[in-house]
Write a protein that binds this DNA or RNA. Structure first.
Length: 228
DNA sequence: TGCCAGGCCCTCTTTAGGGCCTT
């Protein structure tokens, strides 16, 4: 496909955490992280590692993710992994599905590793709610099935979920370009689209391209998560 | 070994409550 997905040399990193709980503020710790680099409309690299923070994995989480306490005992230390993954993604903008969740762990775990979290996050869930209001829900698995995304392996493992999210991002970039006749769908545009008010996607597009669609049918706005 | 959070949006609202998503 000859069209450009993003600005020249723009690379974004799609990340996904597996954790022991829902929030670092209640003692949740990361157990695994994956980062998938996306550039020029394709996946160009990835990093994935379990991480040992010393935290206990509850049975429910072990059943959900397949990550056991025994596996984490043999894993590298969380601080080491976070420094590695931070170096891997560099200053790339970050993307995650329900980015508020991953952003909280990204910040908390980097802080424990004496690193600053400075990247901006885009959220594929917020984008999907605006682009695909017809979907029954906006869970990653549902969207993957809806768009027949490539099977990345076991769900609720960091690399598989990050790869699925990366494919969802590429699909949304493609859909935005086709729907609004754009030559590119750079990260900055996606950042604005995820915050687009009710039925105002075209106006956001117009700010980025003189070829934006001239009219748009307002859509019912679903409940939205926190903007990262 | 625990039943937890967070913020935005919709609606039978607005001096509030529940759903969405993530592990």
């Amino acid at each position: 496909m000859p069209t450009a997905f993003d600005s020249p040399h723009e690379t974004v990193a799609v990340i996904d955490f597996e954790t022991t709980g829902m929030s670092p503020s209640t003692g949740g710790r990361a157990t695994e992280i994956a980062a998938v680099l996306v550039s020029g409309g394709q996946i160009v690299g990835h990093y994935a590692s379990l991480m040992n923070s010393g935290a206990w994995v509850p049975p429910f989480i072990e059943q959900l993710t397949g990550i056991s306490n025994a596996m984490l005992e043999r894993a590298p230390r969380a601080e080491h992994v976070m420094r590695e993954v931070a170096a891997f993604v560099g200053d790339c903008p970050l993307v995650a599905h329900n980015a508020a969740f991953d952003r909280a762990f990204w910040c908390a775990e980097l802080r424990r590793a004496d690193r600053e979290a400075e990247q901006r996050f885009a959220c594929t869930m917020l984008l999907a709610r605006r682009l695909y209001p017809e979907s029954t829900n906006h869970r990653l698995g549902t969207l993957a099935a809806l768009h027949r995304l490539p099977d990345a392996g076991r769900a609720h493992r960091a690399l598989a979920d990050a790869q699925t999210t990366a494919h969802l991002l590429l699909t949304m970039q493609r859909d935005v370009m086709q729907r609004y006749a754009l030559r590119a769908a750079p990260h900055e545009l996606l950042m604005q689209l995820q915050r687009a008010p009710h039925g105002r996607l075209a106006e956001c597009i117009a700010g980025h391209s003189t070829r934006a669609a001239s009219a748009e049918t307002p859509i019912r706005q679903p409940a939205l998560g926190r903007l990262p």
